[in-house]
Simulated assay, not measured.
Amino acid sequence: MTRTGMHMTKKGFSFQGPVEGVHALNSWITAEDDLFLVTHMGFLEIDPNHWHLDIDGLVGNPVKLRLADLLAMPQREYMSFHECAGSPLAPTIAKRRIGNVVWKGVPLSLVLERAKISSDASYVWTSGLEWGSYAEVEEPYQKDLPIAKALAEEVLLALEINGRPLSMERGGPVRLVVPGWYGTNSVKWLGSITAADRRSRSAYTTRFYNDHTAWGVRPVWHVAPESVIVSPSPSDILPADMPTTIWGWAWGDNQISSVEVSVDGGGSWQAATVGPREDRSWQRFELSWSPRAGQHLLICQCTNEVGERQPLADARNAVHSVEINVA
């Protein structure tokens, strides 16, 4: 949907992230310079004075909101991890594009309430304004949310990240944010919201971002339990028999209840301490270790509060390992 006051500044798939990968994630709140950027069709620049959001479909009061309208509505802050689902063309390869940020914006539920969403609506379709092609598909970027998630208090029309207005690269002036779900659902450069009684038929909900399981096709929605080791990193050379701390982050839509760490490539496991979470933030885990000289393969594996366990291989949330040299 092409509108006045916007243009594509870069076309095609794009990825940016820290050179050190997860080992750059030393802070509880991830600085924007260390937070990944992924786009399917490119970057869109929008004149905020021309931006508007259309809410239509199964609503009693179709509305068009300008940026000033959103700024005048009640806003809230919400801390959450933010994770890319990885490539929909290779869904079993772990990419570990992750960060932890504070979003601020208008709860989606307030906008749907203003539009008088119908009780017949079971899904909300959200569409971005960018255009172009991805994997030989050329159509608008559209995702959907079950109505229960769309009305959840944490789902925002985000205006800020970490206390600063959303930049063009981050999907500004307004993007959808769906905490607890993979980033593919958090539509950037949001342009329209449609209430419907069925799922969207967009390529991004049918062809892409669906997992084929033994129980059938499952949308890539809620984030499965995952953890990474931040320190030590492969570039660290540790002295033998000196105490050090293995630490990292664990996260998921459901809270993480335990993390185990192996220092011998999975031969044995030790329980790490796991910190609390705020809203849907990631959680820090730690394990004290006095290594012997030689090569060590460190692995972390987490389990969430409903018993889901991080898989060892062949999944977007497969366990993370780090090779360490102890002098």
Rank of each mutant, 00 (worst) to 15 (best):
P243L: 11
N254I: 13
C84V: 01
V177Q: 07
G267D: 12
P311L: 03
P140T: 05
V111Y: 03
W289Y: 11
L129W: 02
Y123S: 03
G266C: 10
F36C: 00
I193R: 06
Q75G: 09
C300G: 07
R66L: 07
W51G: 10
A152L: 02
P165V: 05
R292F: 02
S227A: 15
L89M: 13
M1D: 12
E153A: 12
A240Q: 10
A203H: 00
L298C: 11
I147F: 04
G105H: 04
M6L: 14
P219M: 08
R198G: 03
S122R: 08
N304Y: 04
N317Q: 10
E153P: 00
G57E: 07
S127F: 01
E32C: 04
V326R: 12
G266H: 06
S268A: 12
A72I: 01
V187M: 06
T206A: 01
S87N: 05
R284S: 11
H52C: 11
G171V: 05
T194M: 09
W221R: 08
P62W: 11
V38T: 06
S227F: 02
I299V: 15
L67W: 09
I161R: 15
G21R: 02
W189P: 09
R207M: 08
V174G: 09
G57K: 02
I98L: 15
W103M: 13
W51T: 08
A250M: 07
G105C: 11
V155W: 00
V230C: 12
V274K: 07
D69K: 01
S118Q: 13
P219H: 11
D120G: 01
V155Q: 05
G132L: 05
S262G: 01
A240M: 10
P179A: 11
A315K: 08
S200K: 08
H222N: 10
E260K: 09
A135T: 02
M8K: 06
R316Y: 09
F36S: 08
R207A: 06
D279P: 00
P234Y: 07
V326F: 09
L297G: 00
W189R: 03
A94R: 14
H296S: 13
P74Q: 02
F208E: 09
A121K: 08
A152N: 12
C302Q: 05
S127N: 04
V230I: 15
I93R: 10
G294S: 14
I324C: 03
Y209T: 00
E136T: 09
I246C: 11
S235P: 00
Q142C: 14
G132D: 05
W181V: 03
S27V: 03
F285E: 05
